[in-house]
Design a protein around this nucleic acid. Sequence first.
DNA 1: ACCTTGACCTACTGATAGTAACCTACCTAT
DNA 2: ATAGGTAGGTTACTATCAGTAGGTCAAGGT
Lengths: 223, 223
Amino acid sequence: MNSSPNPENAESPTELASLVGAYPHGRVPRELRRRQILAVATEAFAERGFAGTSMDEIGRRVGVSKPVLYDLVGSKEQLFHEVVSVETSQMAARVQAAVLAEPDPSTKMRAGSLAFFRFIQERPAWRALVALSDGPVSTELAAARRYHARSVASLIAQGAAETGITLDDSSFDALAHAINGLNEGLALWWNDHLEHTPEALADLATALIGPGLEAFQKQLAEK
Amino acid sequence: MNSSPNPENAESPTELASLVGAYPHGRVPRELRRRQILAVATEAFAERGFAGTSMDEIGRRVGVSKPVLYDLVGSKEQLFHEVVSVETSQMAARVQAAVLAEPDPSTKMRAGSLAFFRFIQERPAWRALVALSDGPVSTELAAARRYHARSVASLIAQGAAETGITLDDSSFDALAHAINGLNEGLALWWNDHLEHTPEALADLATALIGPGLEAFQKQLAEK
DNA sequence: ACCTTGACCTACTGATAGTAACCTACCTAT
DNA sequence: ATAGGTAGGTTACTATCAGTAGGTCAAGGT
Protein backbone atom coordinates (compact mmCIF):
# COMPACT_ATOMS: atom_id res chain seq x y z
CA MET A 1 0.00 0.00 0.00
CA ASN A 2 2.93 2.27 0.51
CA SER A 3 4.42 1.92 -2.93
CA SER A 4 3.77 5.57 -3.62
CA PRO A 5 2.77 6.85 -0.24
CA ASN A 6 3.07 10.53 -0.87
CA PRO A 7 -0.18 12.10 -1.83
CA GLU A 8 1.35 15.36 -2.92
CA ASN A 9 4.50 16.81 -4.26
CA ALA A 10 6.80 15.24 -1.78
CA GLU A 11 8.77 12.54 -3.55
CA SER A 12 9.74 9.41 -1.74
CA PRO A 13 13.39 8.42 -1.56
CA THR A 14 12.70 5.02 -3.08
CA GLU A 15 10.83 6.56 -5.95
CA LEU A 16 13.78 8.81 -6.68
CA ALA A 17 16.25 6.03 -6.21
CA SER A 18 14.73 4.15 -9.13
CA LEU A 19 14.99 7.23 -11.33
CA VAL A 20 18.59 7.59 -10.26
CA GLY A 21 19.19 3.95 -11.06
CA ALA A 22 18.61 4.76 -14.72
CA TYR A 23 22.01 6.40 -14.85
CA PRO A 24 24.58 3.70 -15.41
CA HIS A 25 27.76 5.10 -13.94
CA GLY A 26 26.21 6.68 -10.90
CA ARG A 27 26.60 10.05 -12.55
CA VAL A 28 23.26 11.68 -12.07
CA PRO A 29 22.11 15.13 -13.25
CA ARG A 30 22.33 17.82 -10.63
CA GLU A 31 18.66 18.55 -10.33
CA LEU A 32 17.67 14.95 -9.92
CA ARG A 33 20.41 14.42 -7.36
CA ARG A 34 19.19 17.47 -5.54
CA ARG A 35 15.64 16.23 -5.37
CA GLN A 36 16.90 12.90 -4.15
CA ILE A 37 18.90 14.55 -1.41
CA LEU A 38 15.88 16.58 -0.36
CA ALA A 39 13.74 13.47 -0.19
CA VAL A 40 16.26 11.50 1.81
CA ALA A 41 16.90 14.41 4.14
CA THR A 42 13.20 14.92 4.76
CA GLU A 43 12.89 11.32 5.81
CA ALA A 44 16.05 11.36 7.89
CA PHE A 45 15.24 14.57 9.73
CA ALA A 46 11.77 13.30 10.44
CA GLU A 47 13.15 10.09 11.88
CA ARG A 48 16.01 11.39 13.97
CA GLY A 49 15.64 15.13 14.22
CA PHE A 50 18.14 17.73 13.12
CA ALA A 51 21.01 17.11 15.51
CA GLY A 52 20.45 13.37 15.34
CA THR A 53 21.04 13.30 11.61
CA SER A 54 24.55 13.69 10.28
CA MET A 55 25.48 14.79 6.81
CA ASP A 56 27.54 11.62 6.46
CA GLU A 57 24.41 9.65 7.21
CA ILE A 58 22.45 11.47 4.54
CA GLY A 59 25.31 11.01 2.13
CA ARG A 60 25.40 7.31 2.83
CA ARG A 61 21.67 6.95 2.29
CA VAL A 62 21.84 8.86 -0.95
CA GLY A 63 24.94 6.98 -2.04
CA VAL A 64 27.12 10.00 -2.44
CA SER A 65 29.96 11.69 -0.59
CA LYS A 66 29.70 14.78 1.54
CA PRO A 67 31.15 17.36 -0.85
CA VAL A 68 28.37 16.52 -3.26
CA LEU A 69 25.82 17.38 -0.59
CA TYR A 70 27.56 20.63 0.17
CA ASP A 71 27.79 21.49 -3.48
CA LEU A 72 24.10 20.89 -4.01
CA VAL A 73 22.53 22.18 -0.83
CA GLY A 74 25.06 24.54 0.72
CA SER A 75 24.98 23.52 4.34
CA LYS A 76 23.14 21.40 6.82
CA GLU A 77 21.11 24.35 7.95
CA GLN A 78 20.13 25.30 4.43
CA LEU A 79 19.16 21.75 3.73
CA PHE A 80 17.00 21.71 6.82
CA HIS A 81 15.55 25.03 5.89
CA GLU A 82 14.48 23.73 2.51
CA VAL A 83 12.93 20.65 3.98
CA VAL A 84 10.94 22.64 6.49
CA SER A 85 9.92 25.21 3.91
CA VAL A 86 8.48 22.57 1.66
CA GLU A 87 6.57 20.95 4.48
CA THR A 88 5.31 24.27 5.72
CA SER A 89 4.08 25.49 2.41
CA GLN A 90 2.33 22.21 1.79
CA MET A 91 0.55 22.52 5.08
CA ALA A 92 -0.44 26.10 4.45
CA ALA A 93 -1.72 25.12 1.01
CA ARG A 94 -3.82 22.36 2.47
CA VAL A 95 -5.36 24.64 5.06
CA GLN A 96 -5.99 27.35 2.53
CA ALA A 97 -7.70 25.00 0.15
CA ALA A 98 -9.95 23.73 2.91
CA VAL A 99 -10.91 27.19 4.09
CA LEU A 100 -11.53 28.51 0.62
CA ALA A 101 -13.60 25.50 -0.34
CA GLU A 102 -15.92 26.17 2.56
CA PRO A 103 -18.75 28.42 1.39
CA ASP A 104 -20.21 29.21 4.78
CA PRO A 105 -18.12 31.81 6.65
CA SER A 106 -19.17 30.47 10.00
CA THR A 107 -17.64 27.09 9.36
CA LYS A 108 -14.45 28.19 7.69
CA MET A 109 -12.67 28.16 10.99
CA ARG A 110 -13.54 24.57 11.63
CA ALA A 111 -12.59 23.58 8.11
CA GLY A 112 -9.15 25.10 8.44
CA SER A 113 -8.59 23.59 11.81
CA LEU A 114 -9.66 20.20 10.56
CA ALA A 115 -7.31 20.42 7.59
CA PHE A 116 -4.48 21.24 9.96
CA PHE A 117 -5.11 18.26 12.20
CA ARG A 118 -5.54 15.93 9.26
CA PHE A 119 -2.29 17.11 7.79
CA ILE A 120 -0.22 16.46 10.85
CA GLN A 121 -2.01 13.20 11.37
CA GLU A 122 -1.04 11.83 8.00
CA ARG A 123 2.45 13.25 8.04
CA PRO A 124 4.55 11.93 10.88
CA ALA A 125 7.41 14.04 9.62
CA TRP A 126 5.59 17.15 10.63
CA ARG A 127 4.73 15.77 13.99
CA ALA A 128 8.36 14.92 14.54
CA LEU A 129 9.50 18.32 13.41
CA VAL A 130 7.20 19.98 15.86
CA ALA A 131 7.80 17.58 18.68
CA LEU A 132 11.39 16.43 18.45
CA SER A 133 13.12 19.26 16.86
CA ASP A 134 16.73 20.12 17.36
CA GLY A 135 19.51 22.30 16.17
CA PRO A 136 18.78 25.68 14.70
CA VAL A 137 15.42 24.12 14.34
CA SER A 138 13.37 26.48 16.30
CA THR A 139 14.56 29.42 14.34
CA GLU A 140 13.05 27.51 11.47
CA LEU A 141 9.99 26.64 13.45
CA ALA A 142 9.39 30.21 14.40
CA ALA A 143 9.76 31.17 10.76
CA ALA A 144 7.40 28.42 9.76
CA ARG A 145 4.87 29.61 12.28
CA ARG A 146 5.13 33.13 11.00
CA TYR A 147 4.71 31.93 7.48
CA HIS A 148 1.69 29.90 8.30
CA ALA A 149 0.28 32.69 10.40
CA ARG A 150 0.56 35.06 7.44
CA SER A 151 -1.31 32.58 5.35
CA VAL A 152 -4.07 32.21 7.91
CA ALA A 153 -4.13 35.96 8.46
CA SER A 154 -4.86 36.57 4.83
CA LEU A 155 -7.66 34.04 4.96
CA ILE A 156 -9.14 35.85 7.91
CA ALA A 157 -8.75 39.19 6.24
CA GLN A 158 -10.44 37.87 3.17
CA GLY A 159 -13.32 36.50 5.23
CA ALA A 160 -13.58 39.76 7.10
CA ALA A 161 -13.63 41.79 3.92
CA GLU A 162 -16.64 39.81 2.75
CA THR A 163 -18.54 41.04 5.76
CA GLY A 164 -17.32 44.56 5.28
CA ILE A 165 -14.70 44.58 7.97
CA THR A 166 -11.31 46.09 7.47
CA LEU A 167 -8.47 46.04 9.91
CA ASP A 168 -4.75 46.49 9.69
CA ASP A 169 -2.64 43.54 8.67
CA SER A 170 -0.91 43.40 11.97
CA SER A 171 -4.14 42.72 13.82
CA PHE A 172 -5.06 39.96 11.45
CA ASP A 173 -1.63 38.53 12.09
CA ALA A 174 -2.30 38.55 15.79
CA LEU A 175 -5.54 36.67 15.31
CA ALA A 176 -3.87 34.15 13.08
CA HIS A 177 -1.06 33.56 15.56
CA ALA A 178 -3.59 33.06 18.31
CA ILE A 179 -5.60 30.58 16.28
CA ASN A 180 -2.57 28.66 15.13
CA GLY A 181 -1.19 28.61 18.63
CA LEU A 182 -4.42 27.18 19.91
CA ASN A 183 -4.40 24.51 17.23
CA GLU A 184 -0.77 23.68 17.93
CA GLY A 185 -1.46 23.45 21.61
CA LEU A 186 -4.19 20.94 20.90
CA ALA A 187 -1.84 19.09 18.56
CA LEU A 188 0.68 18.73 21.34
CA TRP A 189 -2.00 17.38 23.65
CA TRP A 190 -3.05 15.04 20.88
CA ASN A 191 0.36 13.39 20.92
CA ASP A 192 -0.59 11.91 24.25
CA HIS A 193 -4.19 11.16 23.30
CA LEU A 194 -4.03 9.64 19.88
CA GLU A 195 -7.40 8.01 20.29
CA HIS A 196 -9.15 11.19 19.24
CA THR A 197 -10.02 12.02 15.65
CA PRO A 198 -9.02 15.15 13.79
CA GLU A 199 -12.72 15.98 13.62
CA ALA A 200 -13.08 15.92 17.37
CA LEU A 201 -10.09 18.20 17.73
CA ALA A 202 -11.38 20.59 15.12
CA ASP A 203 -14.73 20.67 16.89
CA LEU A 204 -13.05 21.51 20.15
CA ALA A 205 -10.89 24.21 18.61
CA THR A 206 -13.91 25.71 16.96
CA ALA A 207 -15.98 25.58 20.10
CA LEU A 208 -13.25 27.35 22.00
CA ILE A 209 -12.40 30.12 19.65
CA GLY A 210 -15.44 30.42 17.42
CA PRO A 211 -17.60 32.46 19.81
CA GLY A 212 -14.72 34.79 20.58
CA LEU A 213 -14.07 35.38 16.91
CA GLU A 214 -17.71 36.09 16.23
CA ALA A 215 -17.95 38.53 19.09
CA PHE A 216 -14.80 40.17 17.88
CA GLN A 217 -16.25 40.47 14.43
CA LYS A 218 -19.53 41.93 15.60
CA GLN A 219 -17.74 44.47 17.69
CA LEU A 220 -15.76 45.59 14.69
CA ALA A 221 -18.77 45.66 12.44
CA GLU A 222 -20.51 48.11 14.73
CA LYS A 223 -17.91 50.75 14.27
CA MET B 1 19.97 18.79 50.52
CA ASN B 2 18.40 21.82 49.02
CA SER B 3 20.36 24.29 51.08
CA SER B 4 19.83 27.11 48.62
CA PRO B 5 19.06 30.18 50.69
CA ASN B 6 17.59 31.97 47.71
CA PRO B 7 14.02 30.85 47.37
CA GLU B 8 12.34 32.22 44.30
CA ASN B 9 14.29 34.52 42.07
CA ALA B 10 17.02 33.29 39.81
CA GLU B 11 20.45 34.19 41.10
CA SER B 12 22.54 36.39 38.91
CA PRO B 13 25.99 35.25 37.86
CA THR B 14 27.61 38.40 39.25
CA GLU B 15 25.90 37.91 42.60
CA LEU B 16 27.28 34.40 42.81
CA ALA B 17 30.69 35.48 41.57
CA SER B 18 31.12 37.68 44.62
CA LEU B 19 30.17 34.82 46.93
CA VAL B 20 32.66 32.66 45.12
CA GLY B 21 35.29 35.37 45.48
CA ALA B 22 35.25 34.77 49.20
CA TYR B 23 37.17 31.56 48.68
CA PRO B 24 40.87 32.34 48.44
CA HIS B 25 42.34 29.56 46.33
CA GLY B 26 39.47 29.32 43.89
CA ARG B 27 38.38 26.18 45.68
CA VAL B 28 34.68 26.61 46.11
CA PRO B 29 32.20 24.23 47.80
CA ARG B 30 30.32 22.01 45.41
CA GLU B 31 26.87 23.39 46.00
CA LEU B 32 27.90 26.95 45.53
CA ARG B 33 29.83 26.11 42.39
CA ARG B 34 26.79 24.29 41.12
CA ARG B 35 24.52 27.25 41.64
CA GLN B 36 27.06 29.44 39.92
CA ILE B 37 27.19 27.13 36.95
CA LEU B 38 23.42 27.09 36.76
CA ALA B 39 23.29 30.87 36.81
CA VAL B 40 25.97 31.28 34.16
CA ALA B 41 24.41 28.61 31.98
CA THR B 42 20.98 30.21 32.20
CA GLU B 43 22.45 33.45 30.96
CA ALA B 44 24.54 31.82 28.27
CA PHE B 45 21.75 29.65 26.89
CA ALA B 46 19.46 32.66 26.84
CA GLU B 47 22.00 34.67 24.89
CA ARG B 48 23.14 32.14 22.36
CA GLY B 49 20.77 29.20 22.50
CA PHE B 50 21.63 25.62 23.24
CA ALA B 51 23.76 24.72 20.24
CA GLY B 52 25.34 28.16 20.22
CA THR B 53 26.70 27.70 23.72
CA SER B 54 29.65 25.38 24.30
CA MET B 55 30.56 23.78 27.57
CA ASP B 56 34.01 25.32 27.19
CA GLU B 57 32.36 28.70 27.01
CA ILE B 58 30.38 28.11 30.17
CA GLY B 59 33.51 26.83 31.85
CA ARG B 60 35.40 29.94 30.86
CA ARG B 61 32.68 32.22 32.15
CA VAL B 62 32.52 30.36 35.43
CA GLY B 63 36.30 30.22 35.65
CA VAL B 64 36.51 26.47 35.80
CA SER B 65 37.50 23.63 33.50
CA LYS B 66 35.16 21.24 31.75
CA PRO B 67 35.51 18.20 33.99
CA VAL B 68 34.23 20.29 36.84
CA LEU B 69 31.10 21.06 34.88
CA TYR B 70 30.61 17.42 34.03
CA ASP B 71 31.16 16.40 37.59
CA LEU B 72 28.59 18.86 38.86
CA VAL B 73 25.90 18.79 36.21
CA GLY B 74 26.32 15.53 34.36
CA SER B 75 26.00 16.58 30.76
CA LYS B 76 25.11 19.49 28.56
CA GLU B 77 21.59 18.18 28.15
CA GLN B 78 21.10 17.73 31.86
CA LEU B 79 22.37 21.21 32.47
CA PHE B 80 19.95 22.57 29.93
CA HIS B 81 17.17 20.51 31.41
CA GLU B 82 17.77 22.01 34.83
CA VAL B 83 17.84 25.52 33.48
CA VAL B 84 14.59 25.06 31.62
CA SER B 85 12.93 23.33 34.53
CA VAL B 86 13.68 26.18 36.85
CA GLU B 87 12.40 28.75 34.40
CA THR B 88 9.30 26.74 33.68
CA SER B 89 8.36 26.19 37.25
CA GLN B 90 8.87 29.84 38.01
CA MET B 91 6.56 30.79 35.21
CA ALA B 92 3.92 28.30 36.26
CA ALA B 93 4.15 29.58 39.80
CA ARG B 94 3.67 33.12 38.64
CA VAL B 95 0.61 32.26 36.59
CA GLN B 96 -0.87 30.18 39.36
CA ALA B 97 -0.46 32.93 41.89
CA ALA B 98 -2.16 35.40 39.59
CA VAL B 99 -5.09 33.14 38.85
CA LEU B 100 -5.61 32.14 42.46
CA ALA B 101 -5.40 35.73 43.63
CA GLU B 102 -8.25 36.64 41.33
CA PRO B 103 -11.54 36.26 43.20
CA ASP B 104 -13.86 36.63 40.24
CA PRO B 105 -13.98 33.42 38.15
CA SER B 106 -14.81 35.34 35.01
CA THR B 107 -11.55 37.27 35.12
CA LYS B 108 -9.25 34.47 36.13
CA MET B 109 -8.49 33.75 32.54
CA ARG B 110 -7.35 37.27 31.89
CA ALA B 111 -5.28 37.33 35.06
CA GLY B 112 -3.42 34.18 34.11
CA SER B 113 -2.84 35.36 30.62
CA LEU B 114 -1.57 38.69 31.85
CA ALA B 115 0.82 37.02 34.27
CA PHE B 116 2.15 34.93 31.41
CA PHE B 117 2.82 37.92 29.17
CA ARG B 118 4.38 39.89 31.98
CA PHE B 119 6.66 37.03 32.81
CA ILE B 120 8.03 36.63 29.33
CA GLN B 121 8.30 40.37 29.01
CA GLU B 122 10.53 40.72 32.01
CA ARG B 123 12.53 37.61 31.30
CA PRO B 124 14.33 37.76 27.99
CA ALA B 125 15.78 34.36 28.74
CA TRP B 126 12.39 32.83 28.34
CA ARG B 127 11.73 34.65 25.15
CA ALA B 128 15.02 33.44 23.76
CA LEU B 129 14.36 29.90 24.84
CA VAL B 130 11.08 29.91 23.07
CA ALA B 131 12.27 31.75 20.03
CA LEU B 132 15.84 30.67 19.37
CA SER B 133 15.99 27.26 20.75
CA ASP B 134 18.24 24.52 19.52
CA GLY B 135 19.56 21.13 20.26
CA PRO B 136 17.46 18.66 22.19
CA VAL B 137 15.71 21.81 23.12
CA SER B 138 12.34 21.10 21.80
CA THR B 139 12.10 17.88 23.68
CA GLU B 140 12.56 20.13 26.65
CA LEU B 141 10.15 22.67 25.31
CA ALA B 142 7.49 20.09 24.74
CA ALA B 143 8.02 18.85 28.27
CA ALA B 144 7.85 22.38 29.58
CA ARG B 145 4.62 22.96 27.72
CA ARG B 146 3.15 19.80 29.15
CA TYR B 147 4.22 20.81 32.60
CA HIS B 148 2.72 24.22 32.29
CA ALA B 149 -0.40 22.80 30.72
CA ARG B 150 -0.87 20.50 33.70
CA SER B 151 -0.57 23.47 35.94
CA VAL B 152 -3.14 25.44 34.00
CA ALA B 153 -5.37 22.40 33.71
CA SER B 154 -5.54 22.05 37.44
CA LEU B 155 -6.43 25.71 37.72
CA ILE B 156 -9.25 25.21 35.27
CA ALA B 157 -10.42 22.10 37.05
CA GLN B 158 -10.42 23.96 40.31
CA GLY B 159 -12.44 26.80 38.81
CA ALA B 160 -14.83 24.36 37.24
CA ALA B 161 -15.32 22.49 40.49
CA GLU B 162 -16.42 25.71 42.11
CA THR B 163 -19.28 25.95 39.68
CA GLY B 164 -20.10 22.30 40.12
CA ILE B 165 -18.58 21.01 36.92
CA THR B 166 -16.55 17.86 36.81
CA LEU B 167 -14.72 16.48 33.84
CA ASP B 168 -11.89 14.05 33.32
CA ASP B 169 -8.35 15.28 33.69
CA SER B 170 -7.57 14.64 30.10
CA SER B 171 -10.20 17.10 28.92
CA PHE B 172 -8.92 19.77 31.24
CA ASP B 173 -5.50 19.11 29.82
CA ALA B 174 -6.82 19.69 26.35
CA LEU B 175 -8.31 23.01 27.36
CA ALA B 176 -5.10 24.05 29.04
CA HIS B 177 -3.03 23.15 26.00
CA ALA B 178 -5.36 25.14 23.81
CA ILE B 179 -5.20 28.18 26.04
CA ASN B 180 -1.46 28.03 26.42
CA GLY B 181 -1.03 27.55 22.72
CA LEU B 182 -3.14 30.59 22.06
CA ASN B 183 -1.09 32.62 24.48
CA GLU B 184 2.16 31.37 23.00
CA GLY B 185 0.96 32.17 19.53
CA LEU B 186 0.28 35.72 20.64
CA ALA B 187 3.70 35.81 22.32
CA LEU B 188 5.33 34.90 19.04
CA TRP B 189 3.44 37.66 17.28
CA TRP B 190 4.45 40.01 20.07
CA ASN B 191 8.10 39.51 19.21
CA ASP B 192 7.45 41.47 16.05
CA HIS B 193 5.15 44.02 17.69
CA LEU B 194 6.83 44.97 20.91
CA GLU B 195 4.92 48.23 21.10
CA HIS B 196 1.97 46.46 22.70
CA THR B 197 1.56 46.02 26.43
CA PRO B 198 1.02 42.75 28.23
CA GLU B 199 -2.38 44.09 29.22
CA ALA B 200 -3.42 44.55 25.63
CA LEU B 201 -2.34 41.04 24.80
CA ALA B 202 -4.14 39.60 27.77
CA ASP B 203 -7.27 41.48 26.73
CA LEU B 204 -7.05 40.07 23.26
CA ALA B 205 -6.46 36.54 24.48
CA THR B 206 -9.40 36.84 26.82
CA ALA B 207 -11.66 38.29 24.16
CA LEU B 208 -10.81 35.43 21.85
CA ILE B 209 -11.16 32.49 24.14
CA GLY B 210 -13.33 33.79 26.96
CA PRO B 211 -16.68 33.43 25.21
CA GLY B 212 -15.79 29.96 24.02
CA LEU B 213 -14.84 28.87 27.49
CA GLU B 214 -18.03 30.24 28.95
CA ALA B 215 -20.16 28.54 26.36
CA PHE B 216 -18.29 25.34 26.98
CA GLN B 217 -18.88 25.68 30.68
CA LYS B 218 -22.61 26.37 30.29
CA GLN B 219 -23.00 23.41 28.05
CA LEU B 220 -21.38 21.17 30.63
CA ALA B 221 -23.41 22.64 33.45
CA GLU B 222 -26.61 21.70 31.71
CA LYS B 223 -25.86 18.03 31.76
C1' DA C 1 55.20 12.56 58.85
C1' DC C 2 51.48 10.02 56.26
C1' DC C 3 47.04 9.20 54.28
C1' DT C 4 42.43 10.61 52.65
C1' DT C 5 39.39 13.73 50.57
C1' DG C 6 37.63 17.29 47.87
C1' DA C 7 38.21 20.69 44.26
C1' DC C 8 40.34 21.20 40.10
C1' DC C 9 43.44 20.63 35.91
C1' DT C 10 45.92 19.06 31.44
C1' DA C 11 45.49 16.49 27.75
C1' DC C 12 43.40 13.40 25.48
C1' DT C 13 39.27 10.61 22.21
C1' DG C 14 35.55 10.52 19.02
C1' DA C 15 32.08 12.48 16.28
C1' DT C 16 30.81 15.57 12.87
C1' DA C 17 30.33 20.09 9.98
C1' DG C 18 32.69 21.84 6.37
C1' DT C 19 36.73 22.22 2.70
C1' DA C 20 40.87 21.61 -0.54
C1' DA C 21 42.54 19.32 -3.99
C1' DC C 22 42.25 15.95 -7.13
C1' DC C 23 40.03 12.45 -10.35
C1' DT C 24 37.51 10.53 -14.41
C1' DA C 25 33.89 9.58 -17.73
C1' DC C 26 31.56 11.84 -21.32
C1' DC C 27 30.91 15.28 -25.00
C1' DT C 28 32.31 18.26 -28.55
C1' DA C 29 35.31 20.82 -31.91
C1' DT C 30 38.82 20.62 -34.38
C1' DA D 1 40.40 10.01 -33.52
C1' DT D 2 41.91 12.99 -30.05
C1' DA D 3 42.53 17.12 -27.06
C1' DG D 4 40.41 19.33 -23.72
C1' DG D 5 36.51 21.34 -21.24
C1' DT D 6 32.99 20.17 -18.03
C1' DA D 7 29.95 17.82 -14.93
C1' DG D 8 29.70 14.68 -11.28
C1' DG D 9 32.31 12.63 -7.95
C1' DT D 10 36.07 11.21 -4.48
C1' DT D 11 39.70 10.97 -0.72
C1' DA D 12 41.63 12.99 2.89
C1' DC D 13 42.04 16.60 5.39
C1' DT D 14 40.77 20.80 9.41
C1' DA D 15 38.27 22.69 13.20
C1' DT D 16 35.09 22.48 16.82
C1' DC D 17 33.05 20.48 20.54
C1' DA D 18 30.98 16.87 23.89
C1' DG D 19 32.73 13.95 26.99
C1' DT D 20 36.69 11.32 29.72
C1' DA D 21 41.13 9.38 31.82
C1' DG D 22 44.13 10.19 34.95
C1' DG D 23 46.70 13.22 37.65
C1' DT D 24 47.86 17.63 40.81
C1' DC D 25 47.48 20.19 44.89
C1' DA D 26 46.03 21.82 49.39
C1' DA D 27 44.00 20.85 54.00
C1' DG D 28 42.75 18.20 57.85
C1' DG D 29 42.67 14.05 60.51
C1' DT D 30 45.57 10.13 62.54
